[in-house]
Design a protein around this nucleic acid. Sequence first.
DNA 1: ACAAAAAATGTGCTCGAACACACTAAAAAA
DNA 2: TTTTTTAGTGTGTTCGAGCACATTTTTTGT
Lengths: 345, 345
Amino acid sequence: MDKKYTIKDIAKMAGVSKGTVDRVLHNRGKVSPAALEKINEVLNVIDYEPNLIARNLKNTKIYRICVFLPDPEIDPYWRPCVNGIQEAILEFKAYGVIIETYYFNPESKKSFLKTHETIIAQSPDAVLLAPLFHKETVEIIKQYDELGIMVNTFNNQVESSSIKSFVGQDLHKSGRVAASLMNLILSKGQIAIIHIDESLKNAVHMQEKEKGFRNYFDEKKLSEFSLTTLKLKYSNIETKFSAFIEENPDLSGIFITTSKAYQIASILSSAKNKKIALIGYDLIEKNVNFLNQGLVHFLIHQNQKRQAYLGVSTLVDHFLFRKEIPETILLPIDIINVENASFYS
Amino acid sequence: MDKKYTIKDIAKMAGVSKGTVDRVLHNRGKVSPAALEKINEVLNVIDYEPNLIARNLKNTKIYRICVFLPDPEIDPYWRPCVNGIQEAILEFKAYGVIIETYYFNPESKKSFLKTHETIIAQSPDAVLLAPLFHKETVEIIKQYDELGIMVNTFNNQVESSSIKSFVGQDLHKSGRVAASLMNLILSKGQIAIIHIDESLKNAVHMQEKEKGFRNYFDEKKLSEFSLTTLKLKYSNIETKFSAFIEENPDLSGIFITTSKAYQIASILSSAKNKKIALIGYDLIEKNVNFLNQGLVHFLIHQNQKRQAYLGVSTLVDHFLFRKEIPETILLPIDIINVENASFYS
DNA sequence: ACAAAAAATGTGCTCGAACACACTAAAAAA
DNA sequence: TTTTTTAGTGTGTTCGAGCACATTTTTTGT
């Protein structure tokens, strides 16, 4: 009853050879109607599942997957991705899957394209890609497509018909989540939406979050709040933000659309400023420190590690186990405060 | 460089036969010091990883894992677990792993022990167990141990030296998480901690959550709050709770330690009561409905589905891939509000 | 009716690890 | 010296799917 049936079993039951069973199962070669019927009869009765282990054993092909992402040395946001990929490397090494990471400078389209060339030269079976530059991304995806290289994207969404899959988060919704939390902490006042980013290549990212954030307040008709947007660059954070605080004494909440909440928290802490509600992104160490100090109220966990891991593992599942690659995997928008933070790192 | 080395490769390189390499790798049989050294030399240079696929192919053993949990028909709390197990069944069927579920009546120790007998009769390789009755659990675990059946537990923690592993959540911490959210919604007032449970077998569970909840308020010295505990049984919820509301007009928050928040929300909604902050557990449909209506503010996601899935998959990983079973897997305490709920189901 | 072509079916090898078994050579016991 | 033991090594088979190739059967053409 529980027995695992093999092709040999089926052949014996149907009174044919395993070759014929194989032809029926894979719909290849010539099979007489009589044999077809006999085998189908058996297949209808028993519950045949091919042994994936045996199937893959024969397949000595080594799969090469290249992961193409910004250099975490330049933008530490990508550091957790590397960990997720590392995990995948160890897990799938034993299955003959080689996973390699290639970094590019997120500031430089040239570096992006150059890294792309390097990857092409490796002739991988698939590429997992963090598509920062829209136009260039569409271009290189076209190239991969022509070379028959499967492409999967993560973190940033790009609309292209050649893209098979995307792993990431709904940024608009994550902005709304932040807004709902802000609305819980505060009952009125001015709220600043602050974009801080070194590369400014994440403009779409940040804007999407802002839209979601504003959308929540608009939808709920929360007129007792006023929302201001502020863009900061690495070089001018301290001066520009201090000036902003000065000009807006009623500021009661800040939503930081990137993982740089700690920079704002740090300025606020040294300024011994009155309580301002702070909501940011990502469980990086500096952010968690300020969360523990009570200066940051909530962090939204983007789970880059899992994004990268899933990006790779769906590809591996496809190659090794012929699983279908889901079109989009949207990771949950985890709400983190000081009490549950420890479980997410 | 990237090559996957096989035992045959090593044998050739060391100038011995694959049998000798096998003896060295598995430390069995007799090997001359000379051969040992030659092989170790090769092993030091290359990075040999046995092909798990080939290893498992030979192993035609069918593993039987029995999952032992309360009947979801009696307590719907366990419904998601069944889904998680179903997922595991499909995923591991192809590897010759049979996973069967056995239900017991959570109200009846007799049913618990009877189901246990049924499972013993199956002589499984491992059991995944939701240990409701403490004394009986310790007893049956001893039996499993003597029969060489591996035991893994989930959801409820039981201290026993024979238990190999536990998958669940830190209940004390989850109480603290609820408290921190409550403290965010309210600035003062009376808060009720309500225990609702049909079986009352989850007493330890609920108490642990209450302890964590109270611990938060104690630790923060939030004297502007007063905490009251209320125990409700299925039969008397409506009357007893209505009376409680009447007696406590200042009640401003309720923390429900089980998944029955919807029952309280339903009473509050029909009573057209003034805003009372509600925090409960579990993303069951009725709870999510009240979350969407704004009557429930937060739900804490216990992720029973994942608990059950991980409970099974760690066992499978152990049998199939000889992975070590982690002693405890603590799932994150997910904070859910109306904005991010959709991503968790 | 016979050869040739086409259709249908069966056989046998491969993948890599694991392990049983056969075998050789050297050491110990007779 | 011959026999027995044991240390050490190699060979060969198994697992199940997949596929190339060989073989048999049937059909077609002349």
